[in-house]
Design a protein around this nucleic acid. Structure first.
Lengths: 201, 201
DNA sequence: AAACCTATTGTACCGAAGTACAGTGCCCCA
DNA sequence: TGGGGCACTGTACTTCGGTACAATAGGTTT
């Protein structure tokens, strides 16, 4: 099955080339092209494309009903991601993501699925009050109980001094536990620790 | 990597056989088996399996925290799908979906993703679009474009020096933008900023 | 023209975070 | 009876983050 590549960025077209057997279609005005594609066609669409309707444009709903369009953004944002999915896009990813990732995304969509990144999935789950807070909780097993206590609080935004008070230990001990946690988890500071523990980033 | 197949339906086990190099584990009581599997194991679990806990059973949360379980149903229903995701399952699909589809689902989950069908995704977005958008995009609108650039990178764990290099500005300017972002968003440091932007905590 | 927002940079300072190099005491396992 | 992991603490140090008090310049609004 051929893939239609839709972008005005030569570098991006080159990046995507390995995904598509056919040559890219060159067009200055994307709308008529989208209208003319056969049903079920797979399309990679660069959202930075000139003359592209806004995601809120109802035409996207029509196109996405007959086609399978994956959105690409050179600067992905969660809100744009959600808007794209709401507009019916089958996926949303960084335009210059590794080709291997793009292959995976394309394969998922081709199989009738929707590609959704961990970032947006985390928001969805959080919004739904899903009790999956410890999915990805492997970090805890790598730490001693006390280290986990400290790491958890640091990841919530507490200062060392606050953690010390809360656990009835000195700030020095907090630093010791945190340092050990950094080493064991392969991070360098509490922010990276938080992103790891919270399963984002 | 081996895949554990969990079903009491001989026909289904045969259907899944091509997915797994190893022979299926035969068990009458699934719970102990799930307890004993090594972390990160990939499991295909037939929800029609006898003696399986209900999806609301908290043990699923524990299992899904350490394993990667994909639910299969011979009669998929959207509500069951949502319940499965809420229980932490990494995917939900028709048990006798084509093997090619199952391969795709397994690949997606193995890559750390969650496989979600188009129908449920549409329902999720239909009901949650606005809530998610609020969580995900509100902060950006409160900041100037440049402040948002800096804040976004800080929330990813980059140091001021790295951000400065990336945006071709001095570290001082990064600090200025960050300070302004802190004030506008009502936080006091980059960690709280990250938690706010990432929509966690 | 004045007021305002934005983007940019400078110097200087303070406190928090993180690390290096220690030490003590407890418990468990070989 | 060691050795090792864990919990805890100390002093001293460096680096980073954040703020205070500035300045310059381009753009928009009133």
């Amino acid at each position: 099955m051929t893939i239609t590549l839709l972008s005005h960025d030569i570098a991006l077209l080159a990046h995507w080339q390995p995904l598509s057997e056919a040559l890219p279609r060159i067009t200055m005005d994307p709308a008529p092209l989208l209208d003319s594609l056969p049903a079920q066609s797979l399309v990679l669409c660069d959202l930075d494309c000139a003359r592209l309707p806004a995601l809120s444009d109802p035409r996207w709903l029509a196109w996405n009903a007959s086609l399978r369009i994956i959105a690409a953004s050179s600067a992905p944002r969660p809100d744009e991601n959600v808007a794209a999915l709401a507009a019916g896009f089958r996926g949303y990813a960084h335009a210059f993501a590794p080709v291997a990732d793009w292959r995976q995304i394309v394969a998922t969509v081709r199989a009738g699925g929707i590609w959704i990144g961990p970032d947006v999935m985390a928001r969805l789950l959080g919004t739904l009050h899903f009790a999956v807070k410890d999915v990805g909780g492997a970090w805890r097993e790598k730490l001693s109980p006390r280290e986990a206590d400290v790491a958890e609080r640091a990841a919530q935004g507490l200062a060392n001094k606050q953690i010390a008070r809360e656990l009835n230990i000195t700030e020095r001990t907090v630093k010791a536990h945190l340092g050990a946690a950094f080493a064991k988890l392969g991070v360098h500071d509490r922010l990276q620790l938080a992103l790891l523990i919270k399963g984002v980033g």
